[in-house]
Simulated assay, not measured.
Amino acid sequence: MPLNDCRIIDLPRIQDPRGNLTFLEAGRHVPFDIKRVFYLYDVPGGAERAGHGHKKLCQLFVAMSGSFDMILDDGYKTKTFHLNRSYYGLYVCPMIWGDLNNFSSGSVCMVLASDYYDESDYYRDHNEFLQAVKANS
């Protein structure tokens, strides 16, 4: 199942009394070539983000500040990840429906993506996503 391929990636940390540093390298820490970076911020309390799936896109989600929950759905089961450390990245493979919620005040969610924005790669209707999952099984 694709949901089993989604996982937390422990990113390198260099701890220093002056402040810590974390870095990411495509091919070493990120399991894909990075073609796009975007981030979510100023999310109002109670708001939800994402609410879609991707046909081919791979992503890595990082809570740069604050925390949020990511609920992943592969069409058969769901799993919730609580992201609250800037040195953890959640790898999300294709054919996973994702919902983001429970944003803390001041949270920032950075997303690394394996490809450029392409609207045709999105499933925006959950029932359409479920039909595609069943058809690909």
Rank of each mutant, 00 (worst) to 15 (best):
P2R: 13
P2L: 10
P2Y: 14
C6D: 05
R7H: 09
R7Y: 05
R7P: 01
I9A: 01
D10I: 07
D10Q: 15
L11T: 06
P12Y: 06
R13W: 10
R13Q: 13
Q15S: 11
Q15W: 04
D16R: 05
P17I: 15
P17G: 14
G19H: 07
G27C: 10
G27M: 06
H29R: 01
H29Q: 06
V30H: 05
V30A: 09
V30K: 04
F32D: 06
F32T: 06
D33E: 14
K35W: 11
V37N: 05
V37F: 13
F38A: 10
F38M: 05
Y39V: 14
Y39A: 11
Y39D: 02
Y41A: 14
V43L: 00
P44D: 11
G45M: 03
R49C: 03
H52Y: 10
G53A: 14
K55I: 15
K56T: 15
K56P: 09
K56R: 15
L60Y: 06
L60H: 12
V62S: 04
M64S: 14
S65E: 14
G66Y: 04
F68Q: 04
M70N: 01
I71C: 08
L72N: 07
D74R: 11
G75A: 09
G75F: 02
K77P: 04
K77V: 03
K79S: 11
F81C: 09
F81L: 02
L83Y: 08
N84T: 10
N84L: 09
S86R: 13
Y88W: 13
Y88R: 12
G89S: 10
G89A: 03
G89C: 00
Y91D: 10
V92R: 01
V92Y: 08
C93M: 04
I96E: 09
D99N: 15
L100P: 00
F103A: 05
S104G: 01
C109E: 12
V111N: 07
V111M: 07
A113D: 05
A113M: 09
S114H: 12
S114D: 08
Y116P: 11
D118C: 14
Y122F: 15
R124V: 15
H126V: 05
H126E: 13
H126G: 08
N127F: 03
E128L: 10
E128F: 00
L130N: 06
Q131E: 15
S137I: 06
